[in-house]
Design a protein around this nucleic acid. Structure first.
Lengths: 195, 195, 195, 195
DNA sequence: TTCTAAACGAGACGGTACGTCTAGTCTTCTT
DNA sequence: AAGAAGACTAGACGTACCGTCTCGTTTAGAA
């Protein structure tokens, strides 16, 4: 997709990339998403503005990468029950959203993604992708155990879970009730169970 | 709420108020929340910028009032079952959020509210207040019927419902699946029912 | 000049006039001419803005009256020599221009007068009028004594004197050299004397 | 004088500088000094406001440069008599002040310079500097010829001349009496001559 | 080597919005 | 009708970012 994998000319310095991502994370945490500007990120990273724009199309893409690309590698939970798996999944989601930079960035980030048609299309595919993948597996196993129907809608449940977490973490409180994952998982699991 | 109910001096012109609210609604619908500026609202309303700032502290407060102060007066549903009441409630929420101006404003509006500590405190009290009130009544009636426990957490359910609707309307699709309200209500109702 | 000397309705309160003039003088002295606004003057005088606009067309007229209508009543000097009379006249001019409010207002006031055609026409007739009257008499006496020609141009000399004083007081220094009046008078007197 | 002679980064475009100065000159001439705003200058020059503020601290500095930096290169007159030299000097001063843009800007410009302590200090050093230099030389030659005393005060005479010209050009008339230079020079020359 | 081309730090560039201020007018109730 | 209060339209203020552009310089692979 990028212009050319050409090796002509000076190669991009990987240290710049890292410095920019670090600076973005710090700034978002310190001053919030709205007050974080590309110029300020570049200045803190000791880098020219073009060096940022060369790698990312804008603030939303940069901050998304800076803030949400660490937790993809958690294993899919397998506790033996749907409620248990959902609880584990939710705990992961809450942990991810509750990291200082993530919590600070979340609402503004979603707003910017939603405002741009190109980015909007990526919300589910990029933003929720890792969670959806794991939820899919959890559902398959639950269906095999006969807990839920095979046609249980993954997206509906995922949006519901993500929405609830977003409202709690991003909009309402600083304090993520430690029982939130369990209570929410219990409601949803019971709600979609057969019987 | 405003500074003083003083009757001294020239009273504020209600036509300005209305013209500003109308202009804000139109602009948000046409160009989106981010591209809506106080200056442009004032210009379209045929009003000086001060006249806007005299009534609202900034864009978030103005757009919130412009976009979300029409539907407070829907009656509390009473269908005889929890699932039915929740479906009706959700349909109202979806209708409110799906209005063109509301859908356009929602993500940016929530982001701005979340970014300001003062406004953040008002999200639940002002933003979700009307819905919460009705949900509370629905829960009380369901508890009387023995469908749910008396201590069922209203806020948890409300956040879950609002979060799911927000994700669907604001972030994902233009088209709110007409069955969304029913399916979601069924899951939640079943999830919190006794037994 | 005003609409009608009608005695209908409530008569203007003379205390307002005085309070406005005092407030204008104070503000000009404290914050300077440019930063003095009609609104601020009215507020300090405890008066509505209209009460100011009802009496003066704008800031220049108000400040002019506030700052330059005290010294009209000095007697015409009569020392027996042209140089002596000019010295006395200049000392009066310097004293008038060097008063705190006058020195603070002078440059801005002249700029506003010069920018408005209506006011521009009044600079010489109103602003320099009292000085010109006295200078005329001094010249007539000097002509009778045979010191100067009868057709000596009053305006040219007056502008020269006023310009020199303006440059010293308004633009250059805070400290008006106490010998300025004498030295300037000596040059001019010698310059226009016969022989 | 400006921030840094640094060669780092993109150099300032000289065409912007010229376009701004031209636009300022035109606007001052057309609408006057007070009605000339930085925003309007930038718009007419086809330039962003920052590009103006990057080069000048404000309107006074900009207009001063736009309007008064052309005539520095006139040769010092040498007619053989003090009166002749002064006449030539005054004619130059009158020509400079009487240019459309200069006449329009003069009073407001002096007012703004006088109101700011930093600029005030520059009135004599920058504004009157070229004239003073030439007057100094004229005085030296006149002293050598024995027409005036060696200690004749340059500043006093310069302020007197400039004040007179300012009053005539800037405040009183559009029409600079063609004989003004000669008449004024005659008075001053005679006034400071020995005997 | 020398050449070519891209990356880089820096900062200028044309725009646009901000939130505050003032101008001069208008509209209310009170004296 | 004057007065105090304050709302009204209009528009300038100086600052901050946006995303792009031009500089001079550096760093590589290709000729």
């Amino acid at each position: 997709m990028s212009s050319s994998p050409s090796s002509r000319g000076r190669p991009r310095d990987p240290r710049s990339h890292e410095a920019i991502v670090d600076a973005a994370t710090e700034l978002v945490t310190e001053v919030g998403y709205a007050a974080t500007s590309i110029g300020a990120v570049a200045a803190r990273a000791g880098v020219g503005k073009d060096t940022v724009y060369r790698r990312w199309r804008g603030k939303p893409e940069l901050v998304f990468e800076a803030v949400f690309t660490t937790t993809d590698h958690a294993p899919t939970p397998d506790t033996g029950t749907l409620a248990g798996d959902l609880t584990a999944l939710l705990r992961g989601l809450i942990d991810e959203f509750h990291a200082p930079a993530a919590a600070a960035a979340l609402p503004g980030l979603l707003a910017d993604f939603a405002a741009d048609p190109v980015l909007k299309a990526r919300i589910r595919s990029d933003f929720l992708a890792p969670s959806k993948e794991r939820l899919q597996i959890v559902f398959e196993r639950a269906a095999e155990r006969g807990e839920i129907a095979t046609e249980t809608p993954v997206d509906l449940v995922l949006d519901t879970l993500a929405g609830a977490v977003f409202f709690h973490i991003g909009l309402v409180g600083e304090h993520p009730d430690p029982q939130l994952a369990g209570r929410l998982a219990a409601v949803i699991a019971k709600g979609i169970e057969i019987r």
